Simulated scan of single mutants.
Amino acid sequence: MFDSVGWPEILVLIVVGLFVLGPERLPQGAAWLGRTIRQVKEYATGAREQIRSELGPEFDELRKPLEDLRSIRNFNPRSAVTKHLFDGENPLDGLTNGDGYLPKPPDLPKPPQRPLAPGERPPYDSDAT
């Protein structure tokens, strides 16, 4: 829940708390906030346990789609395509250079280019455009 809150944000909240509550009431406000957060966590845990006890084994069936959604955070398109197209076996195993990429082919020499004569049209490839 608080994964995105870092030290700079906490420092800003403390400074704002000093201005709003004042230095005398800030410790009481922090204690109240701590108790409230703890109480909310206890309510959430109690609700989860109550649902688990009422649903029994069906709770795990409901939980699986949620875990699948959480796994989307770590989604890797390359491994997903490999898994679904090749049943988890990478057809490029043994051909790659260890980092998952094919080795770069050697550079082929380019044909020599000559300058165009005056009035000569440049080559045009209708398939490439």
Rank of each mutant, 00 (worst) to 15 (best):
E24L: 12
L26G: 03
R70N: 11
D107V: 13
P103A: 03
L95V: 00
P103I: 01
A30K: 14
V81S: 04
I10A: 12
G6Q: 13
L13C: 03
R70H: 10
P27W: 05
G34N: 13
G98N: 01
S71I: 00
G34H: 14
Q28K: 07
L13F: 01
R52P: 02
P65V: 08
A117T: 10
P103Q: 02
P8A: 00
P105K: 14
W32T: 10
F86E: 03
F59A: 12
G119N: 15
K83E: 15
I51Q: 06
A128V: 05
S4L: 12
I37W: 04
K110N: 08
M1E: 09
E42W: 00
Y124G: 02
R73A: 13
S4N: 12
P77E: 08
P23D: 05
E9Y: 00
F19C: 09
S53F: 06
D68R: 11
R73M: 10
S71L: 07
G98T: 00
R35F: 00
S126E: 14
I14E: 01
D125H: 00
L62I: 04
E89A: 07
G88I: 03
F86P: 03
G119Q: 13
D125L: 01
K41A: 15
P105E: 14
E120A: 09
N90C: 01
G56R: 06
A47G: 03
V15G: 00
L26H: 01
P27N: 05
I72N: 07
P106Y: 07
G56S: 08
T82W: 02
E24G: 01
E54R: 14
G56K: 06
E9R: 06
P77F: 08
G100I: 11
P112M: 00
I37V: 12
Y124H: 15
A44M: 09
P111M: 08
G100N: 12
F75P: 03
E49F: 05
V20T: 10
F19A: 13
P65G: 07
E89R: 13
Y124R: 14
N90Y: 01
N76R: 08
I72Q: 15
K83D: 14
W32M: 09
P115A: 15
T129P: 00
A117E: 14
K64L: 14
G6P: 07
L11A: 12
K104L: 13
R48G: 14
E49S: 11
L21Q: 04
R121A: 14
R121F: 01
E120F: 02
W32G: 02
P8M: 01
P112S: 07
T129G: 10
S126A: 12
